[in-house]
Amino acid sequence: MNVLEQTWKWFADPASWTGAGGIWSRLVEHLGYSGLVLLIAAVIALPVGVLVGHRRSGGNVVVGVAGALRALPTLGLLTLFALWIGLGLTAPVLALVLLAIAPLLTGAYAGVSAVDPVVVDAARAQGLTEWQILTRVELPVAVPVIFGGIRNATLQVIATVTIMAYIDLGGLGRFLIDGLAVRDYSRMVASMILAAALALVLDAVLAGAQKLLSSPGLSKED
C-alpha cells in the first residue's frame, strides 16, 4: 500500500476526526492560532503601512523593514524565543507575527501610496480633512491591494502555524511533526493536505470579502 492510499485510509477512519487529537480539534486550534497571529500583526502593520502610504514618505524604510522580516527563518525565531521566554503560546505567536507583518505592511503601504495623487489633491481642494481623505478616498481605492497583503499573510500564516507543533502546541502541524517522529508518512501527507485545503478555503473567503468591501467604482475600470 503506498503512502497516498494509506493517507486516504487515515482520512476515511472516523477515529482520525474526533477526540482531543482528532482532525476537527486540530483544525480549530490551527484556526485559533492563525487568527490570533493575524490579528496582532494587522493591529501593528496595517495602521503603520496606511500612515506611511498616506504621508508618501518613509516608503524606503517600510520596504527595508519588510524585506528584513521576510528573511528571518520562523523556526529559528520560534526556538530562540522559546529559549528566552519558555514554552507556551507567546514564543511561537511572536515568531509568526514577525512573519505576517511583512506582507500586511507592504500591502497597506503600497495600496495607499499607489492612489493617484491627482485624486488626492482633488479631494484636498474640495476641502476634505486629511482624515476624510484617508478614509473616504485613499482607503476605498486601496482596498484591493491591502486585501492582497492580507490574503498573502493569511496563506503564509496558515502554512507556517504548522511549526507550532515543534514545541508542545497543537494545530495541524501536530500530525506533521508526530508523523515524522515515527516515520508515519501518511499522517504527514494528511497534515499537508489539510493545511493546503484550509489555506485555499480561507483565500476564497477573503476573496469574497474583498469583493464585498471594494467600491463598485473600482471594478468598473477599463
Binding site: 526556538t79 529559549l83 507543533a165 515543534y166 514545541i167 508542545d168 511533526i177 517522529a181
Partner: peptide, 9 residues
C-alpha cells in the same frame, strides 16, 4: 511533545 531530542528547549 518537544521536538528537539532532549536539547535546550
Amino acid at each position: 511533545p518537544i521536538n528537539d531530542a532532549g536539547g535546550p528547549l
